[in-house]
Design a protein around this nucleic acid. Structure first.
Lengths: 185, 185
DNA sequence: GTCTATAAGAAGATAGAC
DNA sequence: GTCTATCTTCTTATAGAC
């Protein structure tokens, strides 16, 4: 594992524990057993560390928005989008809430092209001309999914079980019938 | 308005904008047009400011847990609890997500007696011996409600409309029929 | 209640040696 | 890639005058 990857790994662990604002370069360096200067050799600023750390998730959101747009019919689109978002939040369980609702991260990520993808994803889930009840449903689902990883009750649940339960719950709230097993994916 | 109240008011505004970790005593003082020392005259530490700022919400959670326990039957309990939580998150629209998912706040609030109330509230909503699907539903609902205030699409919605839509959405996800108008409250 | 002044430390960041 | 050393700025917090 390269030094860059080690920095990102330590940063992600610490972000999950202390939040982005609560994580200093000193803490990252300490966890790796090196000095701050060694970290600064890999990344010019703390902002770059944050952006690099979340880049894989951002890329997945962009890809998901594109593949969702390729689905025909709203039910298929919603199922596809929810499956992708659920995969993402399960993989980022401990991080998604901490990253999604930290004002520092929000400001940092606002100009990122992936945010357009998130917008279009939400729009596709809501469907054309959504009424307020539908909009609220989409908001509830996205908030619920993002925060699902923070619940201590769910910490011991394995990924596969969490995935299927979150998917079922989200589709139910959105009023979309789950995919039959043979047409899944 | 007393000086203490002015400090708390400024702090809440700034917490909503910048998060708790992103808000310094200097920022609070600047917003009030006074010096840091004037703020320190009102509160011994920053922690005290945070705890005092969120105390009213904590008190409401404790009261809600008590009154919910007094309801007979799970549907009535769920309706009562959801109504109370929705009232709270609507009143704290811009703050609830920032406060609920900031690791600094979580650590600070963990020993607070109100957290017992939150636990019991979630348990009452889940009902006795909840299966995993129900537990996930409760998690989704609480996460969805807490984060509802952060959605820019909902910012322009008035409190009454937001309240009724969130209530309907939450009860639907929990599988509880909404209260009839004549038995509401 | 508010002020000036200041301490003591941690933050992000840089220079330059090895 | 990592180090020591340093700079600047910001943080929480205190002392004491008005």
């Amino acid at each position: 594992m390269s030094a860059r990857e080690r920095v990102i790994g330590a940063a992600l662990d610490l972000f999950a524990e202390n939040g982005v604002s609560g994580t200093s370069l000193q803490m990252i360096a300490d966890r790796l057993g090196v000095t701050k200067a060694a970290v600064y050799h890999q990344f010019p600023t703390k902002e770059e560390i944050v952006l690099t750390a979340i880049a894989p998730a951002m890329d997945r959101l962009v890809a998901l928005a594109e593949s969702t747009a390729g689905q025909r019919g709203r039910p298929a689109r919603v199922r596809h989008a929810i499956a992708g978002v659920v995969d993402l939040v399960v993989d980022y369980r401990r991080l998604s809430a901490v990253l999604s609702f930290d004002p520092v991260v929000i400001q940092l990520v606002r100009p990122h092209p992936a945010m357009r993808a998130v917008e279009s994803l939400l729009d596709m889930i809501a469907g054309p001309d959504p009424d307020p009840a539908t909009r609220i449903g989409v908001t509830m689902v996205s908030g619920g999914l993002i925060t699902a990883g923070t619940d201590p009750h769910l910490a011991k649940m394995d990924d596969e079980a969490l995935r299927s339960l979150l998917t079922a719950s989200a589709l139910r709230l959105l009023g979309v019938r789950p995919a039959r097993a043979d047409q899944k994916q």
